[in-house]
Deep mutational scan, measured.
Amino acid sequence: MLDDRARMEAAKKEKVEQILAEFQLQEEDLKKVMRRMQKEMDRGLRLETHEEASVKMLPTYVRSTPEGSEVGDFLSLDLGGTNFRVMLVKVGEGEEGQWSVKTKHQMYSIPEDAMTGTAEMLFDYISECISDFLDKHQMKHKKLPLGFTFSFPVRHEDIDKGILLNWTKGFKASGAEGNNVVGLLRDAIKRRGDFEMDVVAMVNDTVATMISCYYEDHQCEVGMIVGTGCNACYMEEMQNVELVEGDEGRMCVNTEWGAFGDSGELDEFLLEYDRLVDESSANPGQQLYEKLIGGKYMGELVRLVLLRLVDENLLFHGEASEQLRTRGAFETRFVSQVESDTGDRKQIYNILSTLGLRPSTTDCDIVRRACESVSTRAAHMCSAGLAGVINRMRESRSEDVMRITVGVDGSVYKLHPSFKERFHASVRRLTPSCEITFIESEEGSGRGAALVSAVACKKACMLGQ
């Protein structure tokens, strides 16, 4: 009897593995994704193909990295998701002549009506938060230079001027797309009239992360975010950046690689679950690469896999709870928690219980395998993109072996128990001629924006502006 049951459990697990095998990517698959990513990057950089390229390769006008001589107080704003952060950054000489960066910050959550109302409502709310922060720190009387981390696709015309191309991540505030974001912020500050600010720089969160990590390690020339969304930036040779005049030196390019796949480059790798996630998203047909990796989508992918296993009578005796059938019910943090389970399955059992399920031991094991399959594919897909960037940098610099540091931020990278190990191992397999160091950014977005502002202020002083 026991043997029969054991055989049935083994057969069930084997069927589960057959279904989950769809998520496995072979090294040849990853090399294919990497080569296609490089081709799209090239198209994004070139003037004649930029418009139709899915990977936009947006110039950021960040050319210099901090040298350690900029000092002063800077205000930093960070808008990239449902939370908005205001930070005071003091850049100065530390002990023994070292450079020191001290920060104080406060988080504000953005109400739904500000995210989806008008641009005026959104930026009025942001300036209200700045006003509140300055009151708390008794700094209303000071006109501070301000660095703005704005983590949406922007076409820069200068370091302090950028046109919002399109909202992502659930934002829909009308009247912002096609307009200068810094102008919208300046107008809102003017409307309030109770404080003055000098907006000197606007950067993407990947750029802010790279600059913040450069402060720790001067070989950091790539910034990457794996959180709600997924994106990367890197220092490109100016001669390859056709959208900006000049051939000397390097400029940081914001790849906006989340949109890779929007022209069909990933079609052969998309599964039924991916198509369902895409169809029910706020932007169907867009940001397809990001939807395979980002935390906004990972939990939902797992939920759809679990429903398939229920329908195949391989999980929960073929019956799903009402909660499990509800879109968004299986949160991405559950994926991390399930994979963090120590082996007694308590954590998995508790999560499934909150979803109205009474799982068996085998159910718990199957749910864990589903989570591992989805998150491992995410790590491997992400590795193909980064390997594409790094191999490109090595080739354009004609280096036999390139040493490089990548600064990384984002909740999936930082909080998932195995993502970074799987990701690092896969990147290294795909970049055999590179020695890569990964560092995690601390308060990256805010500190990085302030350091970019410090560079901009120093330049302005040198130019006598």
Rank of each mutant, 00 (worst) to 15 (best):
D3K: 00
D4C: 12
E14W: 15
V16L: 13
F23W: 11
L30V: 05
E40I: 06
M41K: 01
L47Y: 11
E51Y: 02
V55R: 02
M57N: 02
L58M: 07
T60W: 00
R85T: 11
V91K: 02
G94W: 08
G97N: 09
V101G: 01
K102T: 07
Q106L: 04
P111H: 15
E112H: 12
A119R: 11
A119Y: 04
S127L: 06
I130C: 11
F133Y: 05
L134R: 04
D135Y: 10
K136D: 10
Q138S: 10
K142G: 04
K143S: 02
G147E: 10
F150D: 14
F152G: 13
H156E: 14
G162F: 14
L164N: 13
W167C: 13
K172F: 06
A173H: 05
G175H: 04
E177L: 09
R186Q: 09
R186T: 05
F195K: 01
F195Y: 03
E196M: 05
D198M: 01
V200R: 01
M202V: 02
D205F: 06
E221W: 05
T228G: 07
M235R: 00
Q239E: 08
E242G: 01
E245V: 02
V253P: 00
N254D: 02
E272Q: 03
R275M: 10
E279K: 15
G285C: 11
L288D: 10
K291R: 12
K296M: 11
R303E: 02
V305W: 00
V305L: 00
R308Q: 11
L309Y: 03
V310D: 07
G328I: 02
A329T: 08
A329L: 13
R333D: 13
E339R: 01
S340R: 04
S340G: 05
T342E: 04
L355G: 02
D363L: 01
R369M: 04
S373N: 04
A378S: 12
A379R: 03
A384R: 00
R392W: 08
I404Q: 08
T405Y: 01
V406A: 05
V408Y: 08
S418I: 14
R428D: 11
R428Q: 11
R428Y: 14
R429M: 15
S433C: 04
K459G: 08
K459C: 13
A460M: 11
L463C: 11
G464H: 12
Q465E: 15
